[in-house]
Nucleic acid binder design. Sequence first.
DNA 1: CATGAATGAGGATTCATTCAT
DNA 2: TATGAATGAATCCTCATTCAT
Lengths: 209, 209, 209, 209
Amino acid sequence: MPKRRGEKYRTIIEAAIKVIADNGYHGSQVSKIAREAGVAEGTIYLYFENKEDILISIFREKLGELISTAPRRLKNIKNSFEILANLIHLHFYTFQNNRKLAHVLQIELRQSDKSIRKGIAEVIREYYRLIEDIVRDGMEKGYFRPDLDPKIARKIIFGSMDEVATCWVLSTRNYNLLYMTEQVYSVLAQAMSRDGRYDPFPLKLRPPQ
Amino acid sequence: MPKRRGEKYRTIIEAAIKVIADNGYHGSQVSKIAREAGVAEGTIYLYFENKEDILISIFREKLGELISTAPRRLKNIKNSFEILANLIHLHFYTFQNNRKLAHVLQIELRQSDKSIRKGIAEVIREYYRLIEDIVRDGMEKGYFRPDLDPKIARKIIFGSMDEVATCWVLSTRNYNLLYMTEQVYSVLAQAMSRDGRYDPFPLKLRPPQ
Amino acid sequence: MPKRRGEKYRTIIEAAIKVIADNGYHGSQVSKIAREAGVAEGTIYLYFENKEDILISIFREKLGELISTAPRRLKNIKNSFEILANLIHLHFYTFQNNRKLAHVLQIELRQSDKSIRKGIAEVIREYYRLIEDIVRDGMEKGYFRPDLDPKIARKIIFGSMDEVATCWVLSTRNYNLLYMTEQVYSVLAQAMSRDGRYDPFPLKLRPPQ
Amino acid sequence: MPKRRGEKYRTIIEAAIKVIADNGYHGSQVSKIAREAGVAEGTIYLYFENKEDILISIFREKLGELISTAPRRLKNIKNSFEILANLIHLHFYTFQNNRKLAHVLQIELRQSDKSIRKGIAEVIREYYRLIEDIVRDGMEKGYFRPDLDPKIARKIIFGSMDEVATCWVLSTRNYNLLYMTEQVYSVLAQAMSRDGRYDPFPLKLRPPQ
DNA sequence: CATGAATGAGGATTCATTCAT
DNA sequence: TATGAATGAATCCTCATTCAT
């Protein structure tokens, strides 16, 4: 029934990110989001099914960008270590570039209800698959250890990036998340590598083109 | 002012774990917890400051056991790989042995308020320190890579274990978390190792003595 | 934030007066007031900040009428005895005409919290000033004793009227408060008078025009 | 059933006055009073029927002192003006000498429930009678106006003293209530007097003997 | 007489959602 | 499409009182 598209749809999502980042999950009433978006409360329900739908949509629209962008960016790279480096870089780059969004995704949305987490899970499962594919591909090509379990490897890669990102968001020191890329890469690369040997970090730390 | 000890205190905590595991964080009213514990609602407040205090206490009492037990269990081990293996084992063992508790700690408590997360953070910081100490110790003794950043290494170790545990709790398949230990170990051990070479998994998968 | 005006605002105030008069201060739940007013509980909070705000508003709106009307009614009268007579008359007339309101103002609202009493005090301070001005004016014009302390005179005038009104409200006999006017006047007029001589009661006991 | 006498009875009353004066009516839980009195909560109920009973007892015991003392102090005085002066003096003296008690009696106890007010009313009715007797006696002896209504005169006398005392308790300036006696007397004396002439204030402002 | 742990009823307030305009 | 006034369900905590010891 709700439109879930159009200019106002995006306006409301941006407003929601701002409001949640500023007021926390529990301090973000629909009325506040409506005010920030410059629409009436009722209008929200022309574009979203309910409040949960707003939150899930933030995830879908925003992390969806990362997830849908990633395969394109990574698929032409042959070297699995390079792919891994770019994955981590892309992940951190996305958050570094939009701290409010990072805060909402890493912290606030996790305080949400079971049903929201379910909606989020659907989006993230695709990301899981992407990482698992990278691992499998690396094993097949001989870059990565043949005894890896792709699922476990994925959990370690994702868990590591997620924890590093969460700590960054929660930190009061204003350090650069992007600069963590190389160190996280060097540990995860050695972790995945066939024999403990992995290619040096292949990136100059500039935004990915 | 609240007692925060005694038999009833523990009864209420166990009841809370059960109720939250069964009904989710938002479906767990104080009245429900009281009924499950077989006490009056008012009695709850003789032992806990407020509802949040119950949740934080679950963390403190239950994860506290893990955290306070760990150093004793690990400190007499010389080999850092063995320590790492035991850490992972202990972490997974704690959850495997009490799935309801695992569910509450990994899922439900994370949907909680800022103030609860703050109470939880205090407990978990100690765990962070423990892991960082293990990393530092391993670096000094020459087991681990000298170029590790202990903080990042900790985030990778904790993030990996946490993600694996979370996936296990959310999984509908009823696999054994403990059996993940060896695989997680083999990846993290190689990740930390000085030259990609690490000791084989040193444990028989029985409960730690 | 609350509107504090409009038709529903007045409806709720009238309902609150009725409910409080009938059930007493402590027996008057918001739900009861809402039901009496024919609105939902939540609607109350569109017009009032909280429950206390309803009570203070009763005072402001209702005694406010008396207080804001009084100066207009009294200022054109030259003779201070006549002013005093009219003041007493107006005071009693207000209550006589709305016994439920009188009950709420004289009895129930006085059992209320500190914060409510504070809100009430602000309104009543204006009334205090009015009475003191009357006394001062009477002294200057030579009607009243030159050795009066206007503050003390005000306390005696207000205290007397207040006590008479309270006793009337609490009385089970259904006597006419308005008929007390002349007697109270004759005592207070002699009390204030320059030499024990005061003008006879100047009013016919009909509602003031 | 409750004893309503003995040393502990008085201890609890004194504790209650202190607790209510310090914490206000609504901040004075039975537990607080028990702690202040140095007894267990349950013990309270050996001496008082319920919480209301404590509050009413404060009134009975403390204002009862004033009320029962007054006739003795006043009955040997012939001159009605002198009696009036002494009544006012005694009233103010009682409060001036125990500000905490004054606060409790004038402010806090008035926020109490209907039933408490009923208990209080019984005590105060005796005081009313005393004042009315003074007025009647003064009329008979020719000191006071023959056209007084003793009931109304009583309301004016009591209402005036009560209002002056209340304002004193609420005032932040720390003025001497006792010094109000003469001014209040001079107004009330003229108010009651047969022909506007009344005896000069007969007291040196020292505690009554 | 004295204790104090246990009880459990009772109520203001918020806020996602609706629907008449 | 858009509005925003109205709705009403849902819940934590306090504290007077009891009663087994």
